[in-house]
Design a protein around this nucleic acid. Sequence first.
DNA 1: CTGTTAGCGCATTCAG
DNA 2: CTGAATGCGCTAACAG
Lengths: 344, 344
Amino acid sequence: MGDNKVTIQDIADRAGVSKSTVSRYLNRGYVSAEKAERIRAVIDETGFQSNFFASRLKTKRSKLIGLVLPRIDSVSVGKLLAGIGYILEPEGYQAIMLVSQLDVEKELGNIISLHQQGVDGIIINSVGITERHIALQKDIHIPMLYTGQYHPEANCLKVDDEAAGRMMGAYLKQMGHERAVFAGVTKTDVAVGVERRKGFTDAFLEGRSGARVDFIETGFGFLNAYNLAGDMLRLKPTVIVGATDNISLGILRYLHEREIKVPEELSVAGFGGYDVGAVVYPALTTVAFNFELVGMNVAQRMLDFIDGRPVAEDVELPFFFVERESVRRVGSQDVVRQSFAGMA
Amino acid sequence: MGDNKVTIQDIADRAGVSKSTVSRYLNRGYVSAEKAERIRAVIDETGFQSNFFASRLKTKRSKLIGLVLPRIDSVSVGKLLAGIGYILEPEGYQAIMLVSQLDVEKELGNIISLHQQGVDGIIINSVGITERHIALQKDIHIPMLYTGQYHPEANCLKVDDEAAGRMMGAYLKQMGHERAVFAGVTKTDVAVGVERRKGFTDAFLEGRSGARVDFIETGFGFLNAYNLAGDMLRLKPTVIVGATDNISLGILRYLHEREIKVPEELSVAGFGGYDVGAVVYPALTTVAFNFELVGMNVAQRMLDFIDGRPVAEDVELPFFFVERESVRRVGSQDVVRQSFAGMA
DNA sequence: CTGTTAGCGCATTCAG
DNA sequence: CTGAATGCGCTAACAG
């Protein structure tokens, strides 16, 4: 049920040469022009295709890169994948992907499974790098590269979430805001749940005793944030910062339904730089990450590892501020009035 | 650099049995409880992992499913992938994916490459099924399943785009609209560019001589539609229908910037049922497809094929109408006034 | 430049 | 139930 009978031997016979010559032809070359031509002819006459598994059994290289993703139907993961593809594809590598569903156990299981599958390396868009991950590294002798999270003993490539948070904190401070609500996520996600929040809080409060940041934990979906938006308003902020653009979008929707004008009555900002942030009204002010670039970087680094090339250290992954329409400048006297407005 | 030295032989020696016994243990069973236990012990003591490629070289089954996707950073593809994963993963199958970048040549190349790679089957989220695809089928003796497009000689699984179009057309007609602009895409994409449009047009015009549908071709991105929105307005519609939610979102943004109220002055609708359509204002009325379900169906069908099970014929892929806020009912006298308003 | 010789690690007859 | 023997199809020394 579905074989490709013709083997390297068959085409060797037909071309009147030996197996090895055909093999050489298939790989480096090193064959006389004359025989090469004969081989070529037979090959595309028979439609021969070298057996992938036999070849890999010998060479121990699969030209396969394993990918472990937290979920697949997300903007950032999509971009990341696209970036990885841009690098891997021209090099003849293919990606085989597994989804961890935001579950650390599954993530670990996926890594093991991929390794067993014979991939040349594994890229993990992790939801949290644990000691178990580090322990795994000892048994798995192929490169494992992490994205999205950081661990001192793992090979990670991620944006500086804390710095991104600080960027936003500094901006809002400079815009005159003094009371913020940070709509964040679980601490389990260190990058987003801890670092991003910390950076924001630090920069926002820095050198001010009057300022304040309240924290509300929500999930990653629109709806989670939407449902908690009421709680956020009760804290009387002048600005709500979503740890993710999706979170901010959910909040925006809630405010719209309550007819609370953004940014006139309340400002909103996010992190991510998703495309939809630009088509929504008001367009969302955000700190944008280039996930595609992250993907390209991590893939390139993987290739360097595999080929034993020197691996670029500490690549600076850029992020930048996208000032759009959802944040306004406030004077200190505005703060009170707006807070009340937010109560509506 | 990166081996798993321990082989089936090693564990056979250590357990005091033969290679074959270990192999049997690994596969069907057929081993005495006593030896099975000894083997099990040695296996997890050594951390042995069966060599994937050697195993595949013998069995000719890879437990790998190839995926060809038009692009990866898109909502619908993400959902599709999630659906495929739900089915494949529990069965021990893994997916290896390639991206066609909306290019037919690449799509064909990807199929060939995947086949050579030894996958057990290929799922193609096609951008257009050509005769070359059909011809390929003759050489490739593994199941090839298509999604997203239809061809009588190919094995396809797709929603009835024409019916979806009709659903929207009938709705808008019933809402009293008589002048529509259909913001569609290239005819190359038969499903979206031709069928969806045809269904819409037919149903919208059906039995009415006064009604009219103008067509404007745009791309798949927000921006494409945004840039052409001015042209659409000049056609004085009472409703603009985007062939895709993204298209509609771009239009919505344009209208917002021009301060044209939706749906008061102009209605907008789309196709897809993306989550963001619900958080935008006004929330987008749309025909929603369950891409996740499509993925689950196509994956299940693939498994049935591979295992030689009877394959479900003509699965009905459901879609449904999501009435939200972006379309209003118009009286015939409203039409003129609104058309002018749209000119702004 | 080329053919010969050995396996890669495992699954599978085939006799026990 | 089990072990010995035989390749799967290909690559990689090794001597020509």
